[in-house]
Each structure stands twice: as C-alpha cells, then as structure tokens.
Simulated assay, not measured.
Amino acid sequence: MAAEKPNASSAVLTWLPIVVMAVVAVVDIVAGPEVGFVPLVSLGPAFAGLVGGWRRTALIGLVALVLCVGLGLYDGLFDGRRGYTAMASVAGVTGAGVAAAVMRGRREAELASVRSIAEVAQRVLLRPVPLTAGPLQAAVSYTSAVAEARIGGDLYEVVASPHGIRVIVGDVQGKGLAAVETAAVVLGAFREAAHDEPDLVGVGERLERSVARELEGEKFVTAILAEVGWDHEAVFLNYGHPAPMVVRRDGTVDFPRPPAYALPLGLGAHGGEGPKPYRVAFVPGEQVLLYTDGVTEARDAGGAFYPLGERAYLLKDTDARSALEALREDLVRHAAGPPHDDAAMLLLRYHGHGKGP
C-alpha cells in the first residue's frame, strides 16, 4: 500500500492544472463578468510549472491563454483593459512557470548524477562482503542518514587472510563527504594490514597510525576488529565501539565486553593504552552481529532505544541475508522515520564447513 501513495500524489499533481482551469471557467460563466474570475486562469500554468516539464507547462499556458481569450470575449472584457490585463497575467505566469520547470529539470539531472556517483563510491568503498569466508557465512546491511547520498561514515569489511578471517566494523565521527573520506582511509589501511600483520593487535596499531596521520583535531573513529579461525574462538579488539552481540545455539544472547575500554582510533596521541584483545567462544551454529551505534541508539516515537538483544530471535532464518534483512526492517519500523545516524550491521555465522588451515 505504501508504494501506491507516491503514484496517487503524482496523478493528482498532473491533473491539478487542468482541473483548476476548468473550475475557474465554470465559476466565471456561472458568476458572470462582474466577479472577474478570468485572471485566475493563470493558476493552471503556475501549477504546471511546479510539477511538469517545460514543454507541458508551455502547452498548458497556451491552453490557458486561449481560455482567457474565450472567457474575455464571453464576458465582454475586451471593451476595456481588463481582458488585455488578464492575457498579460496568463502570459507572464506561463513564462515564469516555463523558467521554473527548466531550472527544476536541471536540478533533477544534477541530483541524478550525484546519486549515480554516490552509488559508484558505495560500491568502491564498501565492497560486497563474501557470502562465505573460511568457516563463516556473512551478510551486511547499511543505511545512510544522509538523504539521497546512500553513503555515510559507517564502514565494514571482511578479509580472508593467511592468519584467519579478519573483520572490521567502524563509525567515523561526523557525516557527509568528510566522513566518507575518513572511512576510505580506514578501510584501505585495514585491507592491507589484515594480510600483512600476523596478529590482530598489529592490525590495530597499523590502523591507529594511518588514522592519526590523516585526521586533524579531535576527529576519531570508533571500531571493533575481529578475527575468526578454526579454533572455535573469536578474538576482538575494541576501539570505543559498541560490544558485539553473540547469539548462542540455544538462542541466548551475550554482549562480551573488553577487559578495559580504549580510546577510538585517532585519539591514541592523547595518551592511554591501546585495546587489549579478548577471546570469546564461537562454535558452529552460533552467530556474531557487529553493528554501529546507529542501531542501538535508534529511538521510537516514545524515545525508547532499539532493544537489539530482545530482537535476536529475528536472526533465525537459515539464510543469513534474509535474517539480517528481517532485523533491518524491524529497526526501520522501530525508528518510524528517517534514520538520524548511519546504521551498519555485519552478521557472521559459524557454519564450520569448508577447508581448514
């Protein structure tokens, strides 16, 4: 039903100029020349310029001008100046409507170009994650808070390295193109370090150095890194990011937290120790959901946060992508409106199939 509303609105706006001119003509004929409704015929091209192309606006303007002449002759307005004034009004509004339609068309073309560029940037920056990587199945969901851009400051990646499956989910401070640029820096450094560094701490240190070089002032990136091998464990490294959600085989939910919280990436120069890796049991049949705070901080109409742990049962679908889509749809229903922050989710399922090390 929701898909029918835009079509109905578009149909109403399309026919509105014609209906308005018809109503003005009928009322003018019924009321007589003393009332002076003829100049209101110019509402037709005025409305046409708001919703139609310039050709259609010009055509409706021509119809309005003919109608104006006909009503003027019927009312005897051309015996004085009133008829010519009404014609001038219709012609002027038609010209303005055509100009508005031309400018709107140019803006729509520019917006379409921006959307296309954003989609290309999305595919380059946030590449599709592999459906399977080692013992894992993966699925991802991303919703940008920037209208029309379809891209923002949240980031994710899954890399099958010689040292295990390495994953990152992060959240760049801020929004828009500046956040996208920072996300590109983080992802580029992670993709390289994930292959080169023998342990997860080394990957994190490479990221910290890369981000510190690129960011200025107090900007930062919260992130969580994960490494999964064939030993039925997941290793996490948390840089001030929300704790992962682990869904056990019996349906129970756990949010394993780091032994000590560390500063986000980019703030290492302010002192404090880096994050300590911590291990969590992760066996076949279990799931790990990595996400950004745009998920847990989404509020409903009453101001309540999204209860992620209570909605873990939505991940029961045997297909990882379908399960994550069900969770995303529930999140959208909870927020009941456009998101106020980027929201990224990365679901990892330990299926245990494939070739071991």
Score class of each variant (00 low, 15 high):
residue 96 A to D: 07
residue 127 R to A: 07
residue 80 G to F: 11
residue 57 T to E: 01
residue 117 I to V: 15
residue 56 R to L: 14
residue 73 L to Y: 13
residue 127 R to N: 08
residue 129 V to K: 08
residue 81 R to P: 09
residue 81 R to A: 14
residue 129 V to R: 03
residue 63 V to F: 14
residue 111 L to H: 08
residue 106 R to T: 10
residue 91 A to P: 01
residue 108 E to D: 15
residue 51 V to Q: 05
residue 99 A to K: 06
residue 50 L to E: 07
residue 116 S to V: 11
residue 73 L to M: 14
residue 92 G to Q: 10
residue 96 A to G: 06
residue 53 G to R: 04
residue 65 L to G: 00
residue 92 G to D: 04
residue 121 A to L: 15
residue 92 G to Y: 05
residue 58 A to Q: 08
residue 77 L to A: 08
residue 125 L to N: 13
residue 49 G to P: 00
residue 98 V to A: 06
residue 104 R to W: 05
residue 105 G to T: 08
residue 68 C to I: 02
residue 102 V to T: 09
residue 65 L to M: 14
residue 115 R to D: 13
residue 99 A to M: 12
residue 130 P to C: 11
residue 121 A to I: 10
residue 49 G to S: 05
residue 104 R to P: 08
residue 52 G to S: 15
residue 79 D to A: 13
residue 110 E to W: 02
residue 90 V to G: 00
residue 60 I to S: 03
residue 93 V to A: 00
residue 49 G to V: 04
residue 111 L to C: 03
residue 119 E to M: 13
residue 93 V to K: 03
residue 102 V to C: 09
residue 97 G to I: 03
residue 47 F to W: 00
residue 87 M to G: 04
residue 59 L to M: 12
residue 53 G to V: 08
residue 105 G to F: 11
residue 104 R to K: 12
residue 85 T to D: 06
residue 115 R to A: 11
residue 84 Y to T: 02
residue 90 V to W: 00
residue 118 A to F: 10
residue 98 V to F: 02
residue 90 V to H: 04
residue 61 G to K: 01
residue 113 S to L: 15
residue 97 G to H: 01
residue 105 G to S: 10
residue 69 V to M: 07
residue 71 L to F: 06
residue 123 R to V: 10
residue 127 R to E: 10
residue 82 R to D: 15
residue 54 W to R: 09
residue 120 V to H: 11
residue 72 G to D: 06
residue 104 R to D: 06
residue 71 L to C: 06
residue 86 A to R: 04
residue 87 M to S: 09
residue 80 G to E: 14
residue 65 L to E: 02
residue 128 P to C: 10
residue 94 T to H: 01
residue 112 A to R: 15
residue 58 A to M: 13
residue 107 R to T: 13
residue 65 L to N: 00
residue 91 A to L: 07
residue 69 V to W: 03
residue 83 G to P: 01
residue 63 V to S: 13
residue 56 R to N: 11
residue 115 R to L: 06
residue 95 G to D: 02
residue 68 C to W: 00
residue 76 G to M: 05
residue 49 G to F: 00
residue 84 Y to S: 06
residue 94 T to I: 07
residue 70 G to W: 04
residue 116 S to T: 14
residue 59 L to Q: 07
residue 60 I to M: 05
residue 102 V to L: 14
residue 127 R to L: 11
residue 89 S to C: 07
residue 111 L to T: 11
residue 59 L to V: 12
residue 81 R to C: 00
residue 72 G to S: 05
residue 99 A to D: 04
residue 129 V to D: 02
residue 89 S to Y: 01
residue 110 E to Q: 14
residue 90 V to F: 04
residue 84 Y to M: 09
residue 63 V to A: 12
residue 126 L to Q: 07
residue 52 G to E: 04
residue 59 L to Y: 08
residue 124 V to I: 15
residue 75 D to T: 00
residue 109 A to V: 12
residue 57 T to P: 02
residue 50 L to R: 09
residue 115 R to M: 12
residue 75 D to Y: 00
residue 121 A to K: 10
residue 52 G to C: 12
residue 125 L to C: 12
residue 110 E to K: 07
residue 59 L to E: 09
residue 97 G to M: 01
residue 61 G to W: 05
residue 53 G to I: 10
residue 53 G to L: 13
residue 66 V to C: 11
residue 73 L to N: 12
residue 75 D to I: 01
residue 92 G to N: 12
